[in-house]
Each structure stands twice: as C-alpha cells, then as structure tokens.
C-alpha cells in the first residue's frame, strides 16, 4: 500500500499536533527547570518540518505525474495473500490471548500446525513438525533457559 508523499506529510503534521497537544498537559517538576514536555516538543517540531516538506514533494509529484493519493499493493487484490497477512497477524493475537490461559504447549502446537497447513504443508508434516518444534522450544526455553512460559492446562500434566 503506497501513499502519495502529501498523504504521509499530512499524517505527520497531524501527528505533530497530537504530540504537542498531549505533551502540553505534562506537568512541571518541582525544583527543576526542564520537564517531561520539552523533548516531545522538539520531536513534534521535527515531524512538522518533515511533514510540510513531504506535502510539498507529494503535491509536486502529483502535478507532474498524476500519482494517485493511495496506490494499493498487488497483494491487496489477491484474496489468498490478504488472508496470509490475516493469518500471520491473527496467529500473534491468538497466541497473546490464549497462551496465558491455555498454556504455551497447546497454543503453540495448534497455531504452528494450522499455519503450516495454511501455507501449504501436508497435514501429517504440519502436525509432526509442529509437535517437534513445540517440544524443543519448551525444553530449551522453559527447562534450560528458565523462561517462565505459561504452563496453563499442562501444569497438572507436567507437575502432578
């Protein structure tokens, strides 16, 4: 998805204003001359300048070549590839939501198997590789590296 520079510039200008408005609410620190708001002000100023320049560039390009405000990427017109994006992002959301509840092992196994299948692996291969990967990560991270991966449903199975 490609935007004309003027659109990007407009977004930046809006962002700059939002930063200034939010930052102006930051309090002063008793006994200090400089507070939390000054650095965001500087960044907003930078966004403002860059935004204005991009708007100028974008308008010039548009006059010269008639570039559209927004040009959709090729993948956005292909349902298969759009779904691919959905699957990747969805998998992360599901993991975030489900792992603390169900535990790492079931969540990782199901997600891996489904994603592999979706991306074109056979069922048998997907299930086997997913199981092996899940086991390997659990052992290396939980047991060796001592990362506290959530146990969830598996807790009473692993530690009866």
């Amino acid at each position: 998805m490609r935007f004309n520079n003027a659109v990007l510039g407009g977004l930046l200008l809006a962002g700059a204003i939002a930063i200034v408005v939010t930052a102006s609410g930051f309090p002063n620190v008793p006994g200090q001359q400089f507070g939390p708001r000054h650095f965001p002000y500087l960044i907003a100023a930078g966004f403002g300048v860059c935004g204005a320049l991009l708007v100028a560039q974008g308008l010039a390009t548009r006059r010269a070549t008639g570039e559209a405000w927004v040009r959709l990427g090729d993948w956005m017109t292909s349902p298969r590839h759009l779904l691919n994006v959905g699957v990747v992002l969805g998998a992360m959301l599901v993991y975030w939501w489900a792992a603390p509840v169900l535990g790492f092992i079931p969540t990782a196994f199901i997600l891996l198997a489904l994603m592999m299948r979706w991306l074109g692996a056979g069922w048998l291969g997907a299930v086997c590789v997913a199981a092996a990967t899940t086991a390997m990560i659990h052992i290396s991270f939980y047991s060796w590296l001592r990362v506290s991966l959530p146990l969830g449903l598996m807790r009473d199975v692993l530690y009866p």
Binding site: W97, V101, Y159
Partner: peptide, 27 residues
C-alpha cells in the same frame, strides 16, 4: 475455558491453592 480470560484464569487458579498446600514446592 475460551469464555473469557478472567473466568478461565479463575478456573485454572482455583485448584492451585489446594494443591499448593499438598506438596509445595513441586514445580
């Protein structure tokens, strides 16, 4: 379990208190 994070975590946490007293620490 899938009904909601809060409900589900209560379900999971409830037996924990009981088993904790049994043989703490076992994990």
């Amino acid at each position: 379990f899938l009904g909601g994070t809060v409900a589900a975590s209560t379900v999971v946490a409830a037996p924990a208190v009981v088993s904790a007293q049994a043989a703490w620490p076992n994990r």
